[in-house]
Nucleic acid binder design. Structure first.
Lengths: 250, 250
DNA sequence: AGAGCGCAGAGCGTATACAATATGGGGCGA
DNA sequence: TCGCCCCATATTGTATACGCTCTGCGCTCT
Protein backbone atom coordinates (compact mmCIF):
# COMPACT_ATOMS: atom_id res chain seq x y z
CA UNK A 1 0.00 0.00 0.00
CA UNK A 2 1.80 3.05 -1.24
CA UNK A 3 4.95 2.59 0.69
CA UNK A 4 7.27 5.22 -0.62
CA UNK A 5 5.31 8.08 0.76
CA UNK A 6 8.21 10.17 1.88
CA UNK A 7 7.89 13.29 3.83
CA UNK A 8 5.48 15.24 1.76
CA UNK A 9 6.83 18.73 1.75
CA UNK A 10 3.78 20.76 2.32
CA UNK A 11 5.11 23.19 4.83
CA UNK A 12 5.56 26.67 3.72
CA UNK A 13 8.67 28.25 5.16
CA UNK A 14 11.48 26.07 4.11
CA UNK A 15 11.97 24.20 7.33
CA UNK A 16 12.72 20.82 5.95
CA UNK A 17 12.53 18.23 8.60
CA UNK A 18 15.43 16.15 7.47
CA UNK A 19 14.64 12.55 6.97
CA UNK A 20 11.92 11.15 9.12
CA UNK A 21 12.55 9.96 12.60
CA UNK A 22 13.60 6.36 12.75
CA UNK A 23 13.98 5.85 9.06
CA UNK A 24 11.83 3.81 6.79
CA UNK A 25 10.32 1.29 9.08
CA UNK A 26 8.69 4.04 11.06
CA UNK A 27 5.27 3.00 9.88
CA UNK A 28 4.75 2.27 13.50
CA UNK A 29 1.10 2.38 14.05
CA UNK A 30 1.63 2.81 17.72
CA UNK A 31 0.48 6.22 18.74
CA UNK A 32 2.97 6.62 21.52
CA UNK A 33 5.73 6.19 18.95
CA UNK A 34 4.24 9.01 16.93
CA UNK A 35 4.04 11.08 20.05
CA UNK A 36 7.66 10.42 20.76
CA UNK A 37 8.66 11.37 17.26
CA UNK A 38 6.81 14.63 17.22
CA UNK A 39 7.82 15.48 20.75
CA UNK A 40 11.44 14.80 19.95
CA UNK A 41 11.24 16.85 16.81
CA UNK A 42 9.94 19.78 18.79
CA UNK A 43 12.36 19.46 21.66
CA UNK A 44 15.22 18.99 19.23
CA UNK A 45 14.23 22.13 17.38
CA UNK A 46 13.59 20.32 14.14
CA UNK A 47 10.15 21.81 14.40
CA UNK A 48 10.51 25.41 15.42
CA UNK A 49 8.05 27.48 17.43
CA UNK A 50 5.32 28.74 15.21
CA UNK A 51 5.55 25.85 12.77
CA UNK A 52 2.16 24.66 11.74
CA UNK A 53 1.29 21.03 12.23
CA UNK A 54 -1.41 20.13 9.79
CA UNK A 55 -3.32 17.04 10.70
CA UNK A 56 -3.44 15.32 7.38
CA UNK A 57 0.16 16.13 6.62
CA UNK A 58 1.18 14.37 9.79
CA UNK A 59 -1.30 11.61 9.15
CA UNK A 60 0.29 11.12 5.78
CA UNK A 61 3.81 11.09 7.13
CA UNK A 62 3.11 8.54 9.82
CA UNK A 63 0.76 6.44 7.77
CA UNK A 64 -2.17 6.68 10.13
CA UNK A 65 -5.40 8.55 9.91
CA UNK A 66 -6.11 11.93 11.35
CA UNK A 67 -7.80 10.32 14.32
CA UNK A 68 -4.55 9.18 15.80
CA UNK A 69 -2.80 12.40 14.97
CA UNK A 70 -5.44 14.38 16.76
CA UNK A 71 -4.85 12.33 19.86
CA UNK A 72 -1.15 13.03 19.74
CA UNK A 73 -1.65 16.72 19.11
CA UNK A 74 -4.06 16.99 21.95
CA UNK A 75 -1.61 15.43 24.32
CA UNK A 76 1.14 17.73 23.16
CA UNK A 77 -1.21 20.64 23.62
CA UNK A 78 -1.86 19.69 27.22
CA UNK A 79 1.86 19.66 27.77
CA UNK A 80 2.01 23.07 26.17
CA UNK A 81 4.37 21.99 23.46
CA UNK A 82 1.86 22.78 20.76
CA UNK A 83 -0.89 25.35 20.68
CA UNK A 84 -4.31 24.41 19.39
CA UNK A 85 -6.27 27.28 17.93
CA UNK A 86 -9.95 26.45 17.45
CA UNK A 87 -10.36 26.42 13.73
CA UNK A 88 -6.82 26.89 12.64
CA UNK A 89 -5.23 23.72 13.82
CA UNK A 90 -2.04 23.05 15.69
CA UNK A 91 1.28 24.79 15.73
CA UNK A 92 4.40 24.54 17.83
CA UNK A 93 3.97 26.79 20.83
CA UNK A 94 5.85 30.04 20.86
CA UNK A 95 6.23 30.77 24.56
CA UNK A 96 5.68 34.32 25.68
CA UNK A 97 8.20 36.07 27.85
CA UNK A 98 5.89 35.72 30.78
CA UNK A 99 5.53 32.00 30.24
CA UNK A 100 9.26 31.69 29.96
CA UNK A 101 9.75 33.43 33.29
CA UNK A 102 7.14 31.24 34.91
CA UNK A 103 8.78 28.12 33.60
CA UNK A 104 12.18 29.05 34.91
CA UNK A 105 10.77 30.13 38.22
CA UNK A 106 9.05 26.78 38.48
CA UNK A 107 12.20 24.92 37.56
CA UNK A 108 14.16 26.86 40.11
CA UNK A 109 11.71 25.95 42.79
CA UNK A 110 11.18 22.32 41.97
CA UNK A 111 14.48 21.14 40.62
CA UNK A 112 16.48 22.68 43.41
CA UNK A 113 14.21 21.21 46.02
CA UNK A 114 14.60 17.75 44.54
CA UNK A 115 18.36 17.78 44.69
CA UNK A 116 18.60 16.89 48.33
CA UNK A 117 16.34 13.90 47.99
CA UNK A 118 18.20 12.86 44.88
CA UNK A 119 21.54 13.06 46.67
CA UNK A 120 20.25 10.79 49.39
CA UNK A 121 18.62 8.19 47.22
CA UNK A 122 21.09 7.98 44.42
CA UNK A 123 22.84 4.68 43.83
CA UNK A 124 26.10 3.94 42.07
CA UNK A 125 24.20 2.76 39.04
CA UNK A 126 22.38 6.06 38.91
CA UNK A 127 25.66 7.92 39.03
CA UNK A 128 26.93 5.82 36.18
CA UNK A 129 23.85 6.49 34.14
CA UNK A 130 24.03 10.20 34.71
CA UNK A 131 27.69 10.33 33.79
CA UNK A 132 26.88 8.48 30.65
CA UNK A 133 24.20 10.95 29.74
CA UNK A 134 26.48 13.86 30.47
CA UNK A 135 29.18 12.34 28.31
CA UNK A 136 26.82 11.85 25.44
CA UNK A 137 25.79 15.44 25.77
CA UNK A 138 29.40 16.59 25.71
CA UNK A 139 30.08 14.55 22.66
CA UNK A 140 27.09 15.97 20.88
CA UNK A 141 28.34 19.43 21.75
CA UNK A 142 31.77 18.66 20.41
CA UNK A 143 30.21 17.47 17.18
CA UNK A 144 28.19 20.63 16.89
CA UNK A 145 25.02 18.62 17.06
CA UNK A 146 22.98 21.14 18.90
CA UNK A 147 19.74 19.30 18.41
CA UNK A 148 21.00 16.18 20.04
CA UNK A 149 22.63 18.15 22.80
CA UNK A 150 19.43 19.97 23.62
CA UNK A 151 17.47 16.76 23.79
CA UNK A 152 20.07 15.14 25.98
CA UNK A 153 20.23 18.09 28.27
CA UNK A 154 16.49 18.03 28.81
CA UNK A 155 16.63 14.30 29.36
CA UNK A 156 19.40 14.76 31.90
CA UNK A 157 17.44 17.19 33.98
CA UNK A 158 14.36 15.01 33.76
CA UNK A 159 16.25 11.92 34.82
CA UNK A 160 17.76 13.79 37.70
CA UNK A 161 14.34 14.76 38.94
CA UNK A 162 13.23 11.18 38.61
CA UNK A 163 15.92 10.13 41.05
CA UNK A 164 14.23 12.09 43.79
CA UNK A 165 11.68 9.35 44.00
CA UNK A 166 8.73 11.66 43.56
CA UNK A 167 7.21 10.70 40.24
CA UNK A 168 4.69 13.48 40.31
CA UNK A 169 7.25 16.21 40.68
CA UNK A 170 9.52 14.46 38.24
CA UNK A 171 6.75 14.55 35.69
CA UNK A 172 6.39 18.26 36.21
CA UNK A 173 10.09 18.75 35.74
CA UNK A 174 10.06 16.72 32.58
CA UNK A 175 7.35 18.94 31.22
CA UNK A 176 9.18 22.05 32.26
CA UNK A 177 12.33 20.88 30.56
CA UNK A 178 10.47 20.30 27.33
CA UNK A 179 9.05 23.75 27.49
CA UNK A 180 12.46 25.14 28.29
CA UNK A 181 13.65 23.74 25.05
CA UNK A 182 11.02 25.79 23.26
CA UNK A 183 12.05 28.82 25.21
CA UNK A 184 15.65 28.34 24.18
CA UNK A 185 14.53 28.11 20.59
CA UNK A 186 12.81 31.47 20.79
CA UNK A 187 14.92 33.51 23.15
CA UNK A 188 18.27 31.77 23.07
CA UNK A 189 21.27 32.59 20.96
CA UNK A 190 22.05 30.00 18.41
CA UNK A 191 25.73 29.84 19.27
CA UNK A 192 25.19 29.40 22.96
CA UNK A 193 23.45 26.38 24.24
CA UNK A 194 21.46 26.22 27.40
CA UNK A 195 23.65 24.32 29.75
CA UNK A 196 27.20 25.35 30.30
CA UNK A 197 29.82 22.93 29.24
CA UNK A 198 30.70 21.14 32.42
CA UNK A 199 27.90 22.10 34.74
CA UNK A 200 26.25 18.73 34.54
CA UNK A 201 29.44 16.89 35.35
CA UNK A 202 30.05 19.09 38.34
CA UNK A 203 26.54 18.52 39.50
CA UNK A 204 26.98 14.78 39.30
CA UNK A 205 30.12 15.02 41.42
CA UNK A 206 28.28 16.85 44.14
CA UNK A 207 25.44 14.38 44.11
CA UNK A 208 27.74 11.40 44.08
CA UNK A 209 29.29 12.78 47.26
CA UNK A 210 25.86 12.98 48.78
CA UNK A 211 26.18 16.69 49.17
CA UNK A 212 22.57 17.60 48.58
CA UNK A 213 22.82 21.13 49.86
CA UNK A 214 25.63 22.08 47.55
CA UNK A 215 23.94 20.30 44.70
CA UNK A 216 20.87 22.39 45.33
CA UNK A 217 22.84 25.60 45.30
CA UNK A 218 24.68 24.54 42.22
CA UNK A 219 21.46 23.73 40.44
CA UNK A 220 20.19 27.14 41.40
CA UNK A 221 23.16 28.86 39.85
CA UNK A 222 22.97 26.57 36.88
CA UNK A 223 19.37 27.41 36.12
CA UNK A 224 19.87 31.08 36.74
CA UNK A 225 22.78 31.14 34.36
CA UNK A 226 20.69 29.49 31.68
CA UNK A 227 17.91 31.95 32.17
CA UNK A 228 20.18 34.94 32.15
CA UNK A 229 21.75 33.76 28.93
CA UNK A 230 18.45 34.33 27.19
CA UNK A 231 17.42 37.57 25.66
CA UNK A 232 13.86 37.71 26.74
CA UNK A 233 12.14 40.58 25.12
CA UNK A 234 8.97 40.58 23.13
CA UNK A 235 10.05 40.99 19.62
CA UNK A 236 7.70 42.68 17.24
CA UNK A 237 4.37 41.15 17.98
CA UNK A 238 2.31 40.43 14.97
CA UNK A 239 -1.30 41.41 14.93
CA UNK A 240 -2.40 42.30 18.42
CA UNK A 241 0.16 45.02 18.48
CA UNK A 242 -1.97 47.19 16.25
CA UNK A 243 -4.90 47.00 18.52
CA UNK A 244 -2.79 47.97 21.46
CA UNK A 245 -1.23 50.84 19.64
CA UNK A 246 -4.39 52.39 18.33
CA UNK A 247 -6.51 51.60 21.33
CA UNK A 248 -6.17 55.14 22.63
CA UNK A 249 -7.03 56.71 19.28
CA UNK A 250 -10.48 55.26 19.17
CA UNK B 1 -27.00 -1.88 30.61
CA UNK B 2 -25.58 1.30 31.99
CA UNK B 3 -26.27 0.63 35.60
CA UNK B 4 -27.59 3.90 36.77
CA UNK B 5 -26.61 7.18 35.28
CA UNK B 6 -24.33 8.58 37.87
CA UNK B 7 -23.53 11.59 35.83
CA UNK B 8 -26.59 13.61 36.44
CA UNK B 9 -26.35 17.35 36.44
CA UNK B 10 -25.66 18.60 39.89
CA UNK B 11 -26.64 21.59 41.90
CA UNK B 12 -27.50 24.48 39.70
CA UNK B 13 -25.49 26.77 41.91
CA UNK B 14 -22.46 26.78 39.72
CA UNK B 15 -24.13 26.96 36.37
CA UNK B 16 -22.14 29.62 34.70
CA UNK B 17 -22.96 29.67 31.05
CA UNK B 18 -26.73 29.63 31.05
CA UNK B 19 -26.61 30.92 27.52
CA UNK B 20 -28.73 28.14 26.19
CA UNK B 21 -28.05 29.32 22.70
CA UNK B 22 -28.34 26.11 20.79
CA UNK B 23 -31.75 24.65 21.09
CA UNK B 24 -32.03 21.75 23.45
CA UNK B 25 -31.69 22.28 27.12
CA UNK B 26 -29.12 20.42 29.10
CA UNK B 27 -27.44 18.61 26.27
CA UNK B 28 -24.56 20.99 25.93
CA UNK B 29 -22.57 19.75 23.03
CA UNK B 30 -19.50 21.69 23.96
CA UNK B 31 -16.69 19.36 24.86
CA UNK B 32 -15.18 21.59 27.47
CA UNK B 33 -18.53 21.58 29.21
CA UNK B 34 -18.47 17.81 29.23
CA UNK B 35 -14.96 17.90 30.58
CA UNK B 36 -16.07 20.21 33.34
CA UNK B 37 -18.99 17.99 34.21
CA UNK B 38 -17.00 14.82 34.44
CA UNK B 39 -14.15 16.52 36.21
CA UNK B 40 -16.52 18.01 38.74
CA UNK B 41 -18.22 14.69 39.24
CA UNK B 42 -14.90 13.07 40.02
CA UNK B 43 -13.62 15.82 42.27
CA UNK B 44 -16.95 15.98 44.04
CA UNK B 45 -16.85 12.23 44.66
CA UNK B 46 -19.98 11.58 42.69
CA UNK B 47 -17.79 9.28 40.69
CA UNK B 48 -15.66 7.29 43.06
CA UNK B 49 -12.20 5.90 42.43
CA UNK B 50 -12.44 2.67 40.55
CA UNK B 51 -15.71 3.57 38.83
CA UNK B 52 -15.66 2.57 35.23
CA UNK B 53 -16.36 5.18 32.62
CA UNK B 54 -17.67 3.46 29.54
CA UNK B 55 -17.42 5.49 26.44
CA UNK B 56 -20.81 4.94 24.95
CA UNK B 57 -22.52 5.35 28.28
CA UNK B 58 -21.00 8.79 28.61
CA UNK B 59 -21.67 9.50 24.97
CA UNK B 60 -25.27 8.65 25.58
CA UNK B 61 -25.57 10.79 28.66
CA UNK B 62 -24.09 13.86 27.04
CA UNK B 63 -25.70 13.38 23.68
CA UNK B 64 -22.48 13.33 21.69
CA UNK B 65 -20.65 10.55 19.98
CA UNK B 66 -17.81 8.55 21.42
CA UNK B 67 -15.32 10.69 19.57
CA UNK B 68 -15.85 13.63 21.83
CA UNK B 69 -15.94 11.47 24.92
CA UNK B 70 -12.62 9.94 24.05
CA UNK B 71 -11.11 13.38 23.86
CA UNK B 72 -12.39 14.24 27.29
CA UNK B 73 -11.25 10.97 28.78
CA UNK B 74 -7.84 11.39 27.32
CA UNK B 75 -7.46 14.78 28.84
CA UNK B 76 -8.60 13.52 32.21
CA UNK B 77 -6.13 10.69 31.90
CA UNK B 78 -3.27 13.09 31.36
CA UNK B 79 -4.31 14.90 34.51
CA UNK B 80 -4.34 11.54 36.26
CA UNK B 81 -7.94 11.79 37.24
CA UNK B 82 -8.85 8.75 35.20
CA UNK B 83 -6.80 5.73 34.31
CA UNK B 84 -6.88 4.38 30.78
CA UNK B 85 -6.14 0.69 30.53
CA UNK B 86 -5.37 -0.41 27.01
CA UNK B 87 -8.30 -2.56 26.07
CA UNK B 88 -10.41 -2.12 29.12
CA UNK B 89 -11.36 1.48 28.88
CA UNK B 90 -11.38 4.26 31.41
CA UNK B 91 -11.97 4.29 35.12
CA UNK B 92 -11.60 6.84 37.86
CA UNK B 93 -8.05 6.65 39.16
CA UNK B 94 -7.47 4.99 42.49
CA UNK B 95 -4.29 6.63 43.71
CA UNK B 96 -1.75 4.38 45.33
CA UNK B 97 -0.27 5.24 48.69
CA UNK B 98 2.95 6.20 46.99
CA UNK B 99 1.17 8.52 44.61
CA UNK B 100 -0.68 10.05 47.49
CA UNK B 101 2.55 10.76 49.30
CA UNK B 102 4.07 12.24 46.19
CA UNK B 103 1.12 14.49 45.66
CA UNK B 104 1.21 15.84 49.16
CA UNK B 105 4.94 16.29 49.05
CA UNK B 106 4.52 18.23 45.86
CA UNK B 107 1.77 20.35 47.32
CA UNK B 108 3.86 21.06 50.35
CA UNK B 109 6.70 22.23 48.21
CA UNK B 110 4.81 24.27 45.69
CA UNK B 111 1.90 25.71 47.58
CA UNK B 112 4.03 26.87 50.46
CA UNK B 113 6.53 28.48 48.16
CA UNK B 114 3.77 30.39 46.41
CA UNK B 115 2.40 31.93 49.56
CA UNK B 116 4.99 34.66 49.78
CA UNK B 117 4.42 35.80 46.25
CA UNK B 118 0.68 35.64 46.79
CA UNK B 119 0.93 37.76 49.91
CA UNK B 120 2.80 40.41 48.00
CA UNK B 121 0.61 40.52 44.95
CA UNK B 122 -2.79 40.13 46.50
CA UNK B 123 -5.29 42.95 46.10
CA UNK B 124 -8.32 43.81 48.17
CA UNK B 125 -10.53 42.31 45.52
CA UNK B 126 -8.62 39.10 45.78
CA UNK B 127 -9.08 39.04 49.51
CA UNK B 128 -12.79 39.55 49.03
CA UNK B 129 -12.98 36.74 46.56
CA UNK B 130 -11.11 34.36 48.80
CA UNK B 131 -13.27 35.21 51.77
CA UNK B 132 -16.29 34.56 49.66
CA UNK B 133 -15.00 31.18 48.65
CA UNK B 134 -14.14 30.30 52.20
CA UNK B 135 -17.60 31.32 53.32
CA UNK B 136 -19.23 29.19 50.70
CA UNK B 137 -17.12 26.31 51.84
CA UNK B 138 -18.13 26.86 55.43
CA UNK B 139 -21.74 26.97 54.49
CA UNK B 140 -21.45 23.76 52.53
CA UNK B 141 -19.85 22.15 55.54
CA UNK B 142 -22.63 23.34 57.80
CA UNK B 143 -25.17 21.87 55.42
CA UNK B 144 -23.31 18.58 55.41
CA UNK B 145 -22.76 18.90 51.70
CA UNK B 146 -19.41 17.24 51.62
CA UNK B 147 -19.28 17.06 47.88
CA UNK B 148 -19.68 20.76 47.45
CA UNK B 149 -17.26 21.44 50.25
CA UNK B 150 -14.59 19.29 48.69
CA UNK B 151 -14.95 20.99 45.36
CA UNK B 152 -14.81 24.41 46.94
CA UNK B 153 -11.81 23.53 48.99
CA UNK B 154 -9.89 22.40 45.94
CA UNK B 155 -10.97 25.52 44.12
CA UNK B 156 -9.77 27.64 47.01
CA UNK B 157 -6.32 26.19 46.98
CA UNK B 158 -6.13 26.48 43.22
CA UNK B 159 -7.23 30.09 43.27
CA UNK B 160 -4.71 30.87 45.93
CA UNK B 161 -1.95 29.50 43.79
CA UNK B 162 -3.20 31.52 40.88
CA UNK B 163 -2.65 34.67 42.88
CA UNK B 164 1.06 34.05 42.93
CA UNK B 165 1.14 35.21 39.35
CA UNK B 166 2.88 32.10 38.10
CA UNK B 167 0.37 30.41 35.85
CA UNK B 168 2.52 27.39 35.27
CA UNK B 169 2.89 26.57 38.93
CA UNK B 170 -0.73 27.43 39.53
CA UNK B 171 -1.70 24.90 36.92
CA UNK B 172 0.33 22.28 38.71
CA UNK B 173 -1.33 23.11 41.97
CA UNK B 174 -4.73 22.89 40.40
CA UNK B 175 -3.92 19.44 39.16
CA UNK B 176 -2.54 18.41 42.52
CA UNK B 177 -5.68 19.59 44.24
CA UNK B 178 -7.83 17.55 41.94
CA UNK B 179 -5.77 14.51 42.65
CA UNK B 180 -5.92 15.25 46.34
CA UNK B 181 -9.64 15.00 46.12
CA UNK B 182 -9.27 11.48 44.80
CA UNK B 183 -6.85 10.69 47.57
CA UNK B 184 -9.33 11.89 50.14
CA UNK B 185 -11.94 9.69 48.58
CA UNK B 186 -9.75 6.63 49.00
CA UNK B 187 -7.84 7.23 52.20
CA UNK B 188 -9.91 9.79 54.01
CA UNK B 189 -12.52 9.22 56.66
CA UNK B 190 -15.97 10.07 55.56
CA UNK B 191 -16.76 12.06 58.66
CA UNK B 192 -13.69 14.17 58.49
CA UNK B 193 -13.14 16.42 55.57
CA UNK B 194 -9.80 17.51 54.28
CA UNK B 195 -9.48 21.07 55.40
CA UNK B 196 -10.00 21.98 58.99
CA UNK B 197 -12.87 24.23 59.73
CA UNK B 198 -11.31 27.64 59.91
CA UNK B 199 -7.91 27.10 58.44
CA UNK B 200 -8.75 28.84 55.23
CA UNK B 201 -10.07 31.90 56.98
CA UNK B 202 -6.98 32.14 59.09
CA UNK B 203 -4.84 31.80 56.05
CA UNK B 204 -6.66 34.63 54.35
CA UNK B 205 -6.07 36.83 57.35
CA UNK B 206 -2.36 36.24 57.21
CA UNK B 207 -2.23 36.93 53.52
CA UNK B 208 -4.34 40.03 53.80
CA UNK B 209 -1.79 41.33 56.27
CA UNK B 210 0.92 40.69 53.76
CA UNK B 211 2.58 38.26 56.09
CA UNK B 212 3.91 35.86 53.51
CA UNK B 213 6.26 34.03 55.81
CA UNK B 214 3.60 33.17 58.32
CA UNK B 215 1.20 32.26 55.56
CA UNK B 216 3.77 29.85 54.23
CA UNK B 217 4.23 28.23 57.61
CA UNK B 218 0.52 28.07 58.12
CA UNK B 219 0.02 26.44 54.79
CA UNK B 220 2.66 23.93 55.69
CA UNK B 221 0.87 22.97 58.86
CA UNK B 222 -2.43 23.00 57.03
CA UNK B 223 -1.28 20.54 54.42
CA UNK B 224 0.48 18.34 56.91
CA UNK B 225 -2.64 18.16 59.00
CA UNK B 226 -4.67 17.12 56.00
CA UNK B 227 -2.16 14.46 55.11
CA UNK B 228 -1.93 13.12 58.61
CA UNK B 229 -5.69 12.88 58.80
CA UNK B 230 -5.58 10.22 56.12
CA UNK B 231 -5.15 6.57 56.82
CA UNK B 232 -2.79 5.68 54.10
CA UNK B 233 -2.33 1.97 53.98
CA UNK B 234 -2.80 -0.33 51.09
CA UNK B 235 -6.01 -2.06 51.78
CA UNK B 236 -6.51 -5.47 50.31
CA UNK B 237 -5.45 -5.08 46.78
CA UNK B 238 -7.51 -6.96 44.31
CA UNK B 239 -5.80 -8.94 41.63
CA UNK B 240 -2.14 -7.96 41.51
CA UNK B 241 -1.76 -8.99 45.09
CA UNK B 242 -2.03 -12.64 44.18
CA UNK B 243 0.71 -12.40 41.70
CA UNK B 244 2.93 -10.76 44.27
CA UNK B 245 2.14 -13.29 46.92
CA UNK B 246 2.67 -16.36 44.83
CA UNK B 247 5.46 -14.98 42.74
CA UNK B 248 8.02 -16.96 44.74
CA UNK B 249 6.06 -20.19 44.46
CA UNK B 250 6.35 -20.32 40.73
C1' DA C 1 -10.40 52.91 -9.82
C1' DG C 2 -11.56 51.42 -5.22
C1' DA C 3 -14.20 48.84 -2.21
C1' DG C 4 -17.65 45.53 -0.92
C1' DC C 5 -19.59 41.04 -1.98
C1' DG C 6 -19.56 36.29 -3.24
C1' DC C 7 -17.54 31.99 -4.51
C1' DA C 8 -14.29 28.34 -4.10
C1' DG C 9 -10.93 25.83 -1.65
C1' DA C 10 -8.67 24.18 2.41
C1' DG C 11 -8.65 22.37 6.82
C1' DC C 12 -10.70 21.22 11.19
C1' DG C 13 -14.87 19.12 14.06
C1' DT C 14 -17.94 15.41 14.66
C1' DA C 15 -20.35 11.24 13.65
C1' DT C 16 -20.68 6.71 12.07
C1' DA C 17 -18.97 2.32 10.47
C1' DC C 18 -15.94 -1.40 10.72
C1' DA C 19 -12.33 -4.26 12.83
C1' DA C 20 -9.79 -6.21 16.61
C1' DT C 21 -9.70 -8.04 21.18
C1' DA C 22 -10.70 -9.32 25.90
C1' DT C 23 -14.17 -11.56 28.73
C1' DG C 24 -17.50 -14.73 30.30
C1' DG C 25 -20.55 -18.53 29.62
C1' DG C 26 -21.85 -22.81 27.64
C1' DG C 27 -20.84 -27.09 25.56
C1' DC C 28 -17.94 -31.02 25.08
C1' DG C 29 -14.64 -34.40 26.41
C1' DA C 30 -12.07 -37.03 29.87
C1' DT D 1 -18.19 -34.10 37.74
C1' DC D 2 -14.45 -31.25 36.66
C1' DG D 3 -11.75 -28.87 33.50
C1' DC D 4 -10.75 -27.06 29.00
C1' DC D 5 -11.86 -24.98 24.73
C1' DC D 6 -14.63 -22.30 21.74
C1' DC D 7 -17.86 -18.99 20.63
C1' DA D 8 -20.92 -14.96 21.60
C1' DT D 9 -20.84 -10.52 23.27
C1' DA D 10 -19.42 -6.28 24.83
C1' DT D 11 -16.21 -2.55 24.39
C1' DT D 12 -12.45 -0.16 22.68
C1' DG D 13 -9.24 1.23 18.51
C1' DT D 14 -9.00 3.10 14.00
C1' DA D 15 -10.49 4.81 9.66
C1' DT D 16 -13.44 7.19 6.65
C1' DA D 17 -17.14 10.37 5.40
C1' DC D 18 -19.53 14.53 5.70
C1' DG D 19 -20.37 19.28 7.26
C1' DC D 20 -18.98 23.72 8.90
C1' DT D 21 -16.07 27.67 9.16
C1' DC D 22 -12.38 30.45 7.88
C1' DT D 23 -9.36 32.41 4.26
C1' DG D 24 -8.09 34.16 -0.14
C1' DC D 25 -9.16 35.77 -4.63
C1' DG D 26 -11.93 37.59 -8.34
C1' DC D 27 -15.93 40.02 -9.74
C1' DT D 28 -19.07 43.69 -9.92
C1' DC D 29 -21.12 47.94 -8.60
C1' DT D 30 -20.58 52.81 -7.69
Amino acid sequence: MSSGRQVAESNGAGSQQSSGAAGKGSRDKNLSAIYESVSEAIIGHRLKPGARLREDALADVFGVSRTGIRKVLQRLALEQLVTLTPRRGASVTRPSVEEAKDVFEARLLVECALMEAAAKRMTEADVEELRDMANQEQEALRNREQRTAIKLSAAFHARLAELSGNHTLAGFVSQLCSRSSLILAVYGHSGHLGCESHDHENLIDLLANGDGVRARDFMKRHLKSIESSLSMFDEAEEAPDLRDIFASDA
